[in-house]
Design a protein around this nucleic acid. Structure first.
Lengths: 138, 138
DNA sequence: CCTTGAAGCTCTAGTTGCTAGAGGTTTTAC
DNA sequence: GTAAAACCTCTAGCAACTAGAGCTTCAAGG
């Protein structure tokens, strides 16, 4: 049996975050000692590791919740899990594309700034002040 | 003079967001009509356009605040604005790199899922359950 | 056994950047 | 004049935590 601190150290998830996950239903309520302290078994450890892994991959909490629901019903189709993972992959790809557009524009803005002028003539400030100079809408 | 709705339509910034920007100090307090409605001049329009442009580029509010401070002091060095823009560019690049690592891993996870199995044998679930399968820490 | 410090508990509120809704007032158009 | 649109302030919520206050329990050392 693990205390919450032991669980935290084993998984890398902070103590308050474990409590948060229990509060939001992602983790099942833990067994308690007579002193009201949480105690977790290896199932709890595995659940939290799963959550951490999925969070690390950027899955939102409700998607993880759905994945866990699938996990507790092994007879259900794998299709749903695949769809959730695919949706997350698509989201990540969209975010990359958007960030790359931002990078290009910021790169252009930064490249035009030699840091020598006064703020009144600053290329960065001028670029930000002139919305028409945007390469594209954002 | 513009009403807040007119300003919103001209800049694409929502009315509550304009109020929020005034509350947080990013926008100066607006002149008011006798009916207590905000009225903005072209300075206000330009300020909000600047804010929107910078937000669109991902600058956090406090960085925009710093940029605006520079803007109101044209004698100050351009170096600060360049630094802020460079910091934002670095942040965007870091985020891209992190997302690309996520993409690789998700891609691998998704690629192994043909959607035919039951959740109990699901490659996605297995991959998320096994933290050791991570290509790298995240 | 006692003491002390570490670890645990619940509860409240804050972070960032909005966003939504309630309940009221003002403005605008017909 | 009337009705609808637009405006106002205020409160609270969202996502996913995170921090701190004030208290209790546990564990280690003397």
């Amino acid at each position: 049996m693990y205390s919450i601190g032991q669980l935290s150290r084993r998984t890398g998830v902070k103590v308050p975050t474990i409590r948060y996950y229990e509060q939001t239903g992602l983790m099942p309520p833990a067994d308690r000692t007579s002193g009201n302290q949480r105690r977790y078994d290896t199932d709890g450890l595995e659940r939290l590791s799963f959550i951490r892994h999925a969070r690390g991959l950027g899955f939102p909490i409700d998607a993880i919740s759905a994945l866990i629901e699938l996990q507790t019903h092994p007879d259900r189709s794998c299709q749903a899990a695949g769809d959730l993972a695919q949706a997350q992959l698509d989201d990540v790809r969209n975010r990359i594309a958007r960030l790359q557009a931002l990078e290009s524009e910021l790169d252009r803005i930064v490249a035009g700034c030699d840091g020598k002028g006064a703020a009144g003539d600053c290329h960065v400030m001028t670029a930000l002040a002139d919305h028409d100079l945007c390469a594209q809408d954002h």
